[in-house]
Each structure stands twice: as C-alpha cells, then as structure tokens.
C-alpha cells in the first residue's frame, strides 16, 4: 500500500520533470513547423542543423568559450586555491568571502555589474567580455572544489616530498597537483557545465556581435523556436545522458555522482 503510494507519487514527479523534455524530443522529429501540430515523422531538422549558420555559430561560440574559460579558470583557480590555503587566517577569510560573492549574488547582479564595468571603461562588449565574464564566475567554483582537497591532504605531504629531496617545484608537480587532482577535475567539470549552461551573465556581457546557444534560444523563444534547435538540444541531451551513464557505470561507487 505505502509502496504503491510512493510509486505513484514518484511517477507524477517524474512525469512533471520529463514532460517538457519529451515534448522537445518528439517535436524534433515533427515534420510540421508548428509546435502544436504533429505533421509526421522526419529527420529533416537534424540535417538542417548542419546547414544553419546561425545555430552553428552559436554552438561554436558556446563551446569555444566553455573550453577556454574552463582551462583558464581551472588553472588560475587551482593556483589561487593553493595560495589561499597558505595564507594567514584573516587573509584567507577575506579572500574567500570576496570569492564567494559571484556564487551567492544573483546572476543578474553579477551580469549587470560586469556589463557596467565594461561599458564604463569603454570596452566594447563582445567575445572577449563574455569570455572574461565566464572566467569570473567559474573561478570561484573551481576554488571551492579544490580547497577541500587541499585541506584533506595530510598537511605534511608537501613536507614529506621536500624531506625526500624534492625541490619545491618538483614536489608541486609530482605530489601536490596529483594529490588534489580529483578536486581539480570536478572544478573543471563544474566550470564547463556552468559555462555551457549560462544565459543570464552571457546575456549582459555578450553585446550584439556574439551569440551563444542560450542567447539564441532566448531570442527565438519569443518569436518561435526553430525546430532545428529542438534537434540540437535532443542531440546534446542524449550525449550528456550517455556520458552520465558511462561515468556512473565506471565509478560504480554510488555516493559520488557527478552532477
């Protein structure tokens, strides 16, 4: 009895969660352009996807910015985390509190604040400003992912390497970085997904010359989304799904699901 209630409840919740996704996927195969009408099955939108310049460009910028901002924020964030962990307690608290601002502030505030900075300093909005903005909001997450790993590490690990004759640089390369690698990787993953997914901050810092997928979808949503976008998101969604399944199978650990 109780079990049945639980089942039904979970089914309803999942229906609620998946309804729009199913709609999107179904409509990516819909011959009719209208979003309410089923006009027969087709793969056309998937083929169109490769021809549509606007979407191709948006995808290109989305991925390019995601890759660069992930690389930069992972490197800078890791170095910063290593530095922060060695700072005095007061310094550390101050730096971490400022570092947390973009995490805690609403995205819209971060977005308009950065836009204000760029426009006030006469920097033209575009690719560079959007990239900078992505790096700005990604680094704090990398730091938050790496710091716990540094703290977990036995505080004498670095000393142990020096003790065994390693120079500070060698110890950093061969011991410290490998020891905190899991934190660095999850920081990078967070940075990457945040960048891919971001709309609000990009919206305010991209200007008119560049468009990423989120901005494209937003501008289309009011006029009507091209079914090609449905096709694209179905592709992206299935890719992610497959990746998740693989990761889950591989880790098999249970608790540590990478979101």
């Amino acid at each position: 009895m109780q079990k049945a209630v639980k089942r039904i409840y979970m089914s309803i919740v999942f229906l609620f969660l998946y309804a729009p996704i199913i709609v999107l996927i179904v409509f990516s195969f819909n011959k009719s352009k209208s979003r309410g009408q089923w006009g027969g099955f087709t793969f056309d939108w998937y083929f169109d996807l490769f021809k549509d310049r606007q979407i191709r460009e948006a995808l290109y910028f989305t991925l390019l910015i995601a890759v660069i901002s992930t690389l930069v924020s992972t490197i800078v964030g890791t170095i910063a985390a290593l530095g922060i962990s060695n700072m005095s307690k007061i310094g550390r608290t101050v730096v971490l509190n400022i570092n947390n601002l973009p995490v805690l502030n609403p995205d819209i505030v971060t977005g308009v604040a950065l836009m204000t900075l760029f426009i006030s300093t006469r920097i033209e909005l575009g690719f560079v400003t959007m990239l900078i903005a992505h790096i700005v909001f990604s680094i704090p997450y990398v730091i938050l992912a790496v710091l716990p790993k540094i703290r977990q590490m036995n505080k004498h690990t670095a000393e142990a390497a020096l003790d065994l004759g390693a120079t500070p640089a060698y110890a950093m390369r061969k011991v410290i970085i490998p020891e905190i690698m899991p934190g660095i990787i999850s920081g990078a993953l967070i940075a990457f997904t945040l960048s891919i997914d971001d709309f609000v901050i990009s919206f305010f810092t991209a200007g008119t010359s560049v468009t990423n997928l989120s901005i494209l979808v937003y501008s289309m949503a009011r006029r009507g989304v091209k079914p090609t976008i449905n096709a694209l998101s179905t592709l992206m969604f299935t890719t992610v799904l497959i990746l998740m399944l693989i990761i889950n199978k591989k880790t098999d650990k249970g608790e540590d699901i990478i979101i």
Binding site: N154, K155, H156, T157, E159, A160, A161, L162, D163, L164, G165, A166, T167, P168, A171, K174, V175, P178, E179, M181
Partner: peptide, 28 residues
C-alpha cells in the same frame, strides 16, 4: 629541507595517496 641528509616519518605518515606502495618508497 630537500638538501638535508635527514629523513622524516611524519605524523599520520603523509604518504602520497596517488601512488602505490612501490612508488611511495621509490620517491626519494
């Protein structure tokens, strides 16, 4: 420290967790 001919066994060992036993011992 790294030029002293002195070695240390640390509190709670401070082993290198990303290396196996052999590589830990071989490190120096």
């Amino acid at each position: 420290a790294y030029k002293r001919n002195i070695n240390t066994v640390f509190q709670r060992y401070a082993l290198f967790t990303h290396m196996n036993v052999y590589e830990n011992v071989a490190f120096g």
